[in-house]
């Protein structure tokens, strides 16, 4: 699970062009939007693409996105649950 979170943070930094940021600087539990990394609505769309591209997981319902993209922890849990049920 920790490996997945680290990999996820590396992918997130690359996909969202978070210049100068290192994976260890992103708190697994911190909110990605708002006061956390300050991501915006376009970033949210990039995260949807990231999941589909790297994990072959589609977010069908936008409401799910709010929960899934809350933090690195929630994203990793979601990916793992999808992989286990696949």
């Amino acid at each position: 699970m920790e490996d997945l979170k680290t990999k996820l943070k590396e992918q997130l930094i690359e996909a969202l062009n978070l210049e100068g940021m290192k994976p260890e600087e992103i708190d697994n539990a911190a909110p990605l939007f708002g006061e956390g990394l300050g991501l915006d609505s376009i970033d949210a769309l990039e995260l949807i693409v990231l999941l589909e591209k790297n994990y072959n997981i589609r977010i069908e319902d936008p409401k799910d996105g709010r929960k899934v993209f809350h933090s690195i922890d929630t994203m990793a849990e979601f990916i793992q649950s999808k992989q286990l049920s696949a």
Binding site: L16, N17, I42, D43, L45, E46, V49, E52
Partner: peptide, 10 residues
């Protein structure tokens, strides 16, 4: 090549 990037599209 596959998936378009929203961040590029805008």
């Amino acid at each position: 090549t596959g998936l378009a990037s929203p961040a590029v599209f805008v």
